[in-house]
């Protein structure tokens, strides 16, 4: 800075101005503050997960001081709001399993067939029209599907099975399956389209037909993505609430027969929430115990999906 006096005023101003482009405390602070905010919002997702787990475990803990875990798992009745209270989760679990099973019986094959068709067979225009349409189908609110199951599908099923009651797991499961198709098909299709073209070309060059290529080359190559799609479908089915709450009735019923009315874990939570249960009562705690069971089931599937994805991931 010693020789500055020999410069003209103009150049001196320029140098002083250039100093602002160097390290500036204010600018540095500004950047750090923004980064801190961004970091906090990213960390929030972990906080949410922890909050969910802590909240469910905390309330369930109180519940399990009142009811033993053994009773919770083995009792075959779920009547927490009656005078003669029983706290066996099995009736709710059986309802969940039956309705999810029917839903997956519809959604997984249909979703896979649609995905293979769209990814390997369909002409460009069909795909461009079908994809947004399926997306719209996935956007319809679940309560609307519940209405559809109760007032459209059940009456149709009743003409085939006259003894079918107005509330039943069958129609709820079928509609849930239709509802889940878009999730399964779009994820499966994405996975299949991500398989590089030269695998297809290799297969065609060996004289394979489209069907053979799809089944023997593309599907194995896309296995990890397809597994992820199936797992997501299962999670959706298990956690689906409104369709079963509306169309399957809300009585806990230990049955494996889809023609009967029954309640799922989710439907029970809805039923209790519709009533007016005081905070801290045993009824209030039951929905958290039910919620914890549900979370454990879906987390198990998510972890299986994660492991499958890691183990069978093909990298090209």
């Amino acid at each position: 800075m010693k020789g500055l006096h020999i410069l003209t005023e103009e150049s001196r101003n320029k140098i002083a101005h250039a100093g602002k482009l160097g390290y500036s405390f204010r600018r540095h602070l500004h950047e750090r503050l923004i980064e801190a905010f961004l970091f906090l919002s990213a960390i929030l997702s972990i906080a949410i997960m922890l909050a969910i787990i802590v909240m469910l475990i905390k309330e369930s803990f109180v519940f399990f001081q009142h009811v033993s875990i053994w009773e919770f798992i083995t009792d075959t009745q779920w009547t927490p709001l009656f005078d003669d209270a029983h706290y066996g989760i099995m009736p709710l679990v059986s309802g969940t399993i039956v309705s999810s099973f029917i839903a997956l019986l519809v959604a997984l094959p249909m979703g896979t067939i649609i995905a293979i068709y769209l990814s390997e067979f369909a002409p460009f225009t069909v795909r461009e029209m079908a994809k947004p349409f399926l997306e719209l189908l996935g956007g319809v609110p679940t309560v609307v599907y519940g209405y559809f199951a109760l007032l459209f599908v059940t009456p149709i099923l009743q003409t085939i099975f006259p003894e079918l009651p107005g509330f039943n797991l069958l129609s709820a499961g079928l509609v849930m399956g239709i509802m889940i198709i878009p999730y399964v098909s779009s994820m499966t299709e994405d996975a299949m389209r991500a398989v590089p073209m030269n695998l297809r070309e290799g297969s065609y060059a060996m004289g394979a037909t489209r069907f053979q290529t799809a089944i023997r080359v593309i599907m194995p190559a896309a296995f990890s993505g397809i597994a992820a799609a199936y797992i997501l479908g299962i999670s959706r089915a298990v956690g689906e609430t409104m369709v079963v709450a509306i169309a399957a009735g809300m009585q806990p019923n230990l049955t494996w027969n889809p023609m009967e009315p029954a309640a799922t874990i989710t439907a029970y939570i809805v039923q209790v929430s519709l009533g007016d249960l005081p905070h801290g009562s045993i009824g209030y705690q039951t929905i958290f115990a039910a919620g914890l069971t549900l979370l454990l089931i879906t987390l198990t599937f998510n972890i299986i999906g994660h492991v499958l994805r890691k183990r069978y991931r093909e990298i090209y």
Binding site: M49, I52, L56, G239, T241, T266, V270, T298, L299
Partner: peptide
Amino acid sequence: NLAGVPSIIYGLL
């Protein structure tokens, strides 16, 4: 994982 948590669980939270 959060995307796979059933919506009703968010209600309980």
